[in-house]
């Protein structure tokens, strides 16, 4: 079973990389960019075929390694 995991910075956590991208977009002439936040995207291929079990395994993976829940949120999407 394939899963997509999206990890984003929590609101209020400073994102200097997003700020730099925002600035560069401005330099390229894209006006009206209010803000850019950078995140991470993971594709995980699992042996598990049961959706609920896969969800639970992925949640543990996110909590233990893929995301740092002090500063990041995560979203799991199963194919």
């Amino acid at each position: 079973m394939k899963a997509k995991v999206k990890v984003t910075l929590k609101n209020g956590v400073l994102d200097p990389q997003g700020k730099a991208i925002e600035g560069a977009l401005g330099s390229l002439g894209f006006s009206g960019v209010n803000s850019v936040r950078q995140g991470k995207f993971f594709e995980v291929d699992l042996d598990e075929t049961d959706k609920a079990k896969a969800q639970s395994i992925l949640k543990q993976m996110c909590e233990k390694l893929i995301a740092n829940t002090v500063i990041e949120n995560y979203e799991i999407e199963l194919a």
Binding site: V13, L14, P16, Q17, K19, A20, N68, V70, I71
Partner: peptide, 10 residues
């Protein structure tokens, strides 16, 4: 506790 993130000035 806490975390260490990218330097503010990058």
């Amino acid at each position: 506790p806490g975390a260490l993130v990218r330097n503010a000035q990058m």
